[in-house]
Each structure stands twice: as structure tokens, then as C-alpha cells.
Nucleic acid binder design. Structure first.
Length: 564
RNA sequence: CGGGGUGUGGCUCAGCCCGGUUAGAGCGCUUGGUUCGGGACCAAGAGGUCGGUGGUUCGAAUCCACUCACCCCGACCA
């Protein structure tokens, strides 16, 4: 492709709206343009990369027996009502105004619809069906460029099995395929166990990459590979020590003291001597949650511990239930259920609120004074804490979810009555798995992990072109004819070449554009080298430059290709 | 949905507080010329209903109200 005839609108300056590196570079390198919040057009260069990624995905899905579908984005609402997911998705689902259609946010229903009545016997199973298709979700707040959009490309596959053991096999095939896909894409990733949320089903794993632009916070142990979302990662920190002597409880006047920090400062005590109170409504009943010091309640853990719905109490409810405002609440005299974080187990000589504004109570012995207390793991773990599995230090950081694999079970097959007959002739719901990959996220995450101050650094497999040929001074007849000849030769040898044949640009512009676009190998045709029948080759990633003989170009290129 | 911010030529921004000729700069673009290995130079040009609507005023990019769009933080999120 000749650059002079290409639509690759590069930007010299950083666009105002972009913050994270991948977003900035995708705009600057002319890969994408925004149409509206969370809605992006892929320009020719960006779309070439998308096609490389989807090709890798396709190959690995086909390798595990996947069969590619192309499904409609426009779906009858009725199908989604049968599985109760119109309600489950709520405002996240786009609804068509002038007909009872929705825009599909995923495709469990539609795949199951096709399975119904056609996968009739255990002999028809297993099946793995997939598609690479645009999904629509009315995200409340699109962000980070292409990473969280209202419209995005997703590879989603669905497995149909006749037994749970066979589902395990399908799941494990996907697990292996996903690892291959992300490895081939050149991503540094890790895998965490996760809760499957609104998808239904039980076991699931997320494929993640570490990134400040991530929306999940995970705990990761480099030593043993343990990784978990902080919402569920077990806390492994020691309990506060129990003093040998328990003091009596006593009331302290603490005017205008609301936070733990203020309390510690006021009483000259350590944070660990305090128990912070939070009141939640659990199934319409108040529950007092005690945390050590400034530890925050992890509401996911709380909900898991109690089961059912949990929400923090409103300020007016607090007053009604405890007689005090937030900042002065405590376990002594609290007449409803009381639970505490494990870190407080059997603690004594603690300070907490008095359920009376401007007063706290000291000398609390949870064992003696709160006999009905129950303990749960309720706090989020922090960087530096010990791994529950191997004892090494855990790291806590943000991460982006690239892919997610679920063992769905029979939720959809039951709702849509997709049954098969087993060996005994009994009708049973098909056992399903569901597996997704965010295609744009793969691209954005790759860039997040592979760029420098000049621009993107593509790998051989994802690069939109194999080679970037630069004719420096295209008003020099010698360079024009030499670079054109090289261009034709490389194309004939099967390379996909981007040829910067632009007449009116100085060398600096061409070099900078080449570094911005990030094609792994640059071939530079300049006057001085050409006079000696030589060319320069530059490797984008390392910046290394090589002067080579012109007649050895093809041989050298194939050597460089194996180096990158 | 809550909080904060921004909207002026294709891009980055100044001007706004304190209203007053013809709304500016750099980059990009067009034409001609010079230059030609790290974002060149000279000259001449094109390009803007100052996000929108309404109001205040003799007069609004500038003040007021409403509204829309986009960004960031939070809530939410298969």
C-alpha cells in the first residue's frame, strides 16, 4: 500500500479527549475515530489489526472444534423475556423504539434458540458454536477509549454438552484455547477465579491484564500464581491481639469526633484499638458490621456472608435504629444482629461508638460484652498482605478483563426448553458453557503493554503491515526508482508492505510517522546508502539500525522477521 | 445517576474574570519557490453561525438561564 494513496490520518498532537496511552495512540496512529461516547469507527489501519486478532481467535476456536456462526444483533424481545434477562440487564440493554426488538448484548438466548429442537440426542453432542460479532450495551459511562464501549466486538462461544463431565472438558478446551490466543497476541495476562454475576451458572474464570485503566481490582501472587478479585480474595491478616486483662466498659465524652482517625488522635490510641461500625439493611433488618480501625467493609464479601440483599442504611435510618449518627455508633446497646470482621475476633479493650452522639465507649470486650457476635471475613485485602495459598506477599492492582469463561449449566436450556434425550431416552436440559473475548480490548491492552514515547510497537502477528518502506526524498529520481523497485519486489515475495512514497514530506515527518504507526521493521531508502547500493533497516522495538546490501534485502528481511 | 471539568477553523489552544473595531496563535491544508536522513524555510491564500436555544444590553465568544456534547472521579457493570 502506498502511503500517498492511503487513508491513515495521523495526529501530531495528543487529542484532547484521550487520557490512557492506548486511546491516545489509537487516535494518533489513525486506527480509530470516535463517533459518539463509547462508539468508535475503525479506520482501515485499525481494522487490519482487528482482522489479525480475529483471525488468531478463529484459528484457535476452530482448533478446538468450534463452528463459526453469524447471528443477528437485532433480537425479538420475547426470547429475552423467557430467560428473564430483559429485567436482569435493565437499562444496560438497548431497546428498539418502533418494534419489539432489543439489540443483543450477548447471545446465550439466540444460540440456545438454535440448539433447541436440533440438538436432540446425546449423540448430537458436544457442540461448540461461536461468533465474532458486535454487541450493544447501554453503558452508563463509557470510558478509556475502546476499552468500555456501548458497541463492541466480542468473540462469544457456547458449548453444549450432555453431562457435567463433558462440560468440564469443553470448558478446559476453551481455557487452553484462550491461553493460546492471548499468548499469540503477545499479551502478558493472568487468570482469576470470579463470580459470574448476572450470567448465571457457577464456575467461571477471567483472563485479565494488569492496567491502571482497569475496572477490576485484583490480588495477585507472583510466586504461586494465585489471583483473585479483591471482592472475593481471602484476607489472611492476623487478628488484633487480645490483652490478658479486660478492662470494664466506660463512657467517654468525644465532642465532634466522628472518624477513626479523629478518635485515635483525641484519645491517643492506636487504630487497632478501635472498632468501626457500619449499619446495613439485610432483608429489611439492620445488621451492625464491626471492622477493625479504618478497614472498609467489602460489600461483596458481606453479601456473600449473609446471603440475600444487603445495602447500607440511610442516615435517617441510622438515627432511628441506633439513636445516633454515623461516627458515634457501636455494639454496646445495639439490639439487632452484630457481626464483625475476623480481624476483631475475641478482641478486648476496644473503643467504639456509644450509640449516643459525641460519646464513645472504651474497654469493650467482644467476648464478654457482645456474646452473640458472629465473625466473617469482611475486609478487602491490601498490597503486601500474605497470600493464603503460599504465604508470599500479594500485590493488589487494577486490571482489565479480556476474556471470561463460564460453566453456565442449564439456566438457558431450561428457560428455553432446549432438551436432549440421553442414553435412557430421558429428556434433559442441555448443559452449557459460555465463553467471551473482548476483541477491541485485546487490541487496546496490547498497545497498553507495547508502546514508547514515539508510538505503538506492533508484534509481527498483530502488525497491520509486515514492513514499512520509507523512500526518503521522493523528488530524487534515484530514490524513487529504487524504492519503487524494492516495493514491488517485497510485495512479490509475499510481504504486506506500507510504502511511504509521499513527495512533500521531510525525512523527520516520515520517521516519526513510521515510529508512531509501529510496524516492526522499517526499510529506509536514502541517498547516501543507495549510492553504495545499501539500505538501512530499523527494528521498531529496539531501535536498532542495520546497514545492509541492497541485493541481500530479502534474505535479511526474513532473518529480521525471525528475530522479532 | 451524583461530583468535577471542558466546548472558539481539521488538531492543540489564547481571548471570557472586567461586554465595545474586522475573533487570534501554532500545527495542518492550498498555490509558487527553496530545502531534502529525525516533525525545514520564504511568500501568497483558503478555512470559524465562538456547542445550541432563550434572555440581559445600544452592543454578547465574553454576563444570566436552560439545554446538548465530550472528558475525569464515583455509583453501576456478563
Amino acid at each position: 500500500m502506498k502511503l500517498s494513496k492511503s487513508y491513515i490520518p495521523t495526529l501530531k498532537e495528543v487529542p484532547n479527549d484521550a487520557i490512557i496511552p492506548s486511546h491516545i495512540l489509537m487516535l494518533r496512529a489513525g486506527l480509530v475515530r470516535m463517533l459518539s461516547a463509547g462508539i468508535y469507527s475503525f479506520l482501515p489501519l485499525g481494522y487490519k489489526v482487528i482482522k489479525k486478532i480475529t483471525q488468531i481467535i478463529r484459528e484457535e476456536m476452530d482448533a478446538i472444534g468450534g463452528q463459526e456462526f453469524h447471528l443477528p444483533a437485532l433480537n425479538p424481545k420475547e426470547i429475552w423475556e423467557q430467560t428473564n434477562r430483559v429485567e436482569a440487564f435493565g437499562d444496560t440493554m438497548f431497546h428498539i423504539k418502533n418494534r419489539d426488538y432489543v439489540l443483543a448484548p450477548t447471545h446465550e438466548e439466540i444460540m440456545t434458540y438454535h440448539a433447541k429442537g436440533t440438538l436432540k440426542s446425546y449423540k448430537d453432542l458436544p457442540q461448540t458454536w461461536y461468533q465474532i460479532q458486535t454487541k450493544f450495551r447501554n453503558e452508563a459511562r463509557p470510558r478509556s477509549g475502546v476499552i468500555r464501549g456501548r458497541q463492541f466486538l466480542m468473540k462469544d462461544s457456547y458449548s453444549f454438552d450432555s453431562s457435567w463431565e463433558n462440560l468440564d472438558a469443553s470448558y478446559s478446551l476453551h481455557d487452553k484455547a484462550y491461553r493460546k490466543i492471548f499468548e499469540r497476541c503477545g499479551l502478558k495476562f493472568f487468570v482469576v477465579g470470579a463470580s459470574s454475576g448476572a450470567m448465571g451458572g457457577n464456575k467461571s474464570e477471567e483472563f485479565m491484564v494488569k492496567s491502571d485503566a482497569g475496572e477490576d481490582t485484583v490480588a495477585y501472587c507472583e510466586k504461586c500464581g494465585y489471583a483473585a478479585n479483591v471482592e472475593v480474595a481471602q484476607s489472611n491478616i492476623e487478628s488484633v491481639a487480645r490483652n490478658s486483662e479486660s478492662k470494664e466498659i466506660y463512657e467517654i465524652s468525644t465532642p465532634n469526633i466522628h472518624s477513626i482517625d479523629e478518635l485515635c488522635e483525641f484519645l491517643k490510641i492506636h487504630e487497632q484499638e478501635t472498632a468501626k461500625s457500619r449499619v446495613y439493611m439485610h432483608n429489611e433488618k439492620p445488621v451492625l458490621v464491626l471492622m477493625s480501625g479504618n478497614d472498609e467493609v467489602n460489600e461483596t464479601k458481606l453479601a456473600n456472608a449473609l446471603g440475600g440483599q444487603v445495602r447500607p442504611c440511610h442516615p435517617d435510618e441510622l438515627k432511628e435504629i441506633t439513636g445516633a449518627d454515623a461516627g458515634s455508633i457501636g455494639p454496646i446497646g445495639f439490639s439487632h444482629r452484630i457481626i464483625a470482621d475476623l480481624r476483631l475476633k475475641d478482641g478486648n479493650n476496644l473503643y467504639s461508638g456509644a450509640n449516643k452522639n459525641d460519646f464513645h465507649i472504651g474497654g469493650i470486650d467482644l467476648k464478654r460484652d457482645v456474646p452473640k457476635i458472629e465473625y466473617f471475613d469482611l475486609r478487602s485485602i491490601c498490597s503486601g498482605e500474605k497470600c493464603t495459598r503460599c504465604g508470599n506477599h500479594l500485590e493488589v492492582f487494577k486490571a482489565i478483563e479480556l476474556g471470561h469463561i463460564f460453566k453456565l449449566g442449564t439456566k438457558y436450556s431450561e428457560a428455553l426448553e432446549a432438551n436432549f434425550l440421553d442414553e435412557k431416552g430421558e429428556a434433559k436440559p442441555i448443559i452449557m458453557g459460555s465463553y467471551g473475548i473482548g476483541v477491541e480490548r485485546v487490541m487496546a491492552c496490547y498497545i497498553e503493554q507495547n508502546f514508547d514515547e514515539k508510538g505503538i510497537i506492533w508484534s509481527k502477528l498483530l502488525s497491520p503491515f509486515d514492513l514499512h518502506l520509507i523512500g526518503l526524498n521522493m523528488k530524487n529520481e534515484m530514490i524513487v526508482s529504487a524504492s519503487n523497485e524494492i516495493y514491488e519486489k517485497l510485495k512479490a515475495a509475499g510481504y504486506d508492505v506500507l510504502f511511504d512514497d509521499r513527495k512533500d514530506f521531510s525525512a523527520g515527518v516520515k520517521f516519526n510517522d513510521a515510529d508512531l504507526l509501529g510496524i516492526p521493521i522499517q526499510i529506509i531508502v536514502g541517498e547516501k546508502n543507495l549510492k553504495e547500493n545499501k539500505l538501512e533497516v530499523k527494528l521498531r522495538r529496539t531501535g536498532e539500525k542495520f546497514i545492509i546490501d541492497r541485493n541481500q534485502l530479502e534474505q535479511k528481511i526474513s532473518e529480521f522477521q525471525s528475530m522479532i
